[in-house]
Design a binder for these strands. Structure first.
Length: 117
DNA sequence: ACATTGACTCGCG
DNA sequence: GCGCGAGCCAATG
């Protein structure tokens, strides 16, 4: 029987699992790398429904501006901060400097703004 | 088939 | 910095 899990979903899980320790990646970046252009929201959905037993490095996934996706003050926000710092990532006011800790830093821009001026 | 909802992103004010 | 609107796409009701 064929897998009940769609291919893009699996590709996204693999990509997240591949983010190096001490690095972070934004949702759109992960989607692009997984072969799902404009799939940022899908990445969020996949993470939310992912089986905790997979031990995904979910803390390494941030918004495009380097901020943690969860509302500051929330339980999840604090937990993500804690996990990131535990692996050496500097978090200031719920934010990470992508220029320093970003995984793919630039690929993003090429894929999202096509008209390209 | 239509409307709403999100761990999203971008541009503008 | 913050809020809004628009575009985006799969899941849900």
């Amino acid at each position: 029987m064929k897998s009940v899990v769609p291919a893009p979903h699996r590709a996204i899980l693999r990509t997240i699992a591949a983010i190096p320790r001490g690095c972070v990646a934004c949702y759109g970046e992960i989607a692009a790398r997984a072969g799902v252009p404009r799939g940022a929201r899908l990445v969020g959905r996949v993470l939310r429904e992912a089986d905790p037993a997979l031990d995904l490095p979910w803390q390494r996934v941030l918004r495009a501006d380097g901020r943690i996706a969860f509302p500051s003050g929330s339980r999840a926000h604090r937990e993500q901060c804690r996990r990131l710092r535990a692996e050496g990532v500097v978090v200031v006011h719920g934010r990470v400097d992508l220029a320093r800790f970003g995984w793919q830093r630039n690929l993003d821009r090429e894929l999202w703004s096509l008209p390209h001026a």
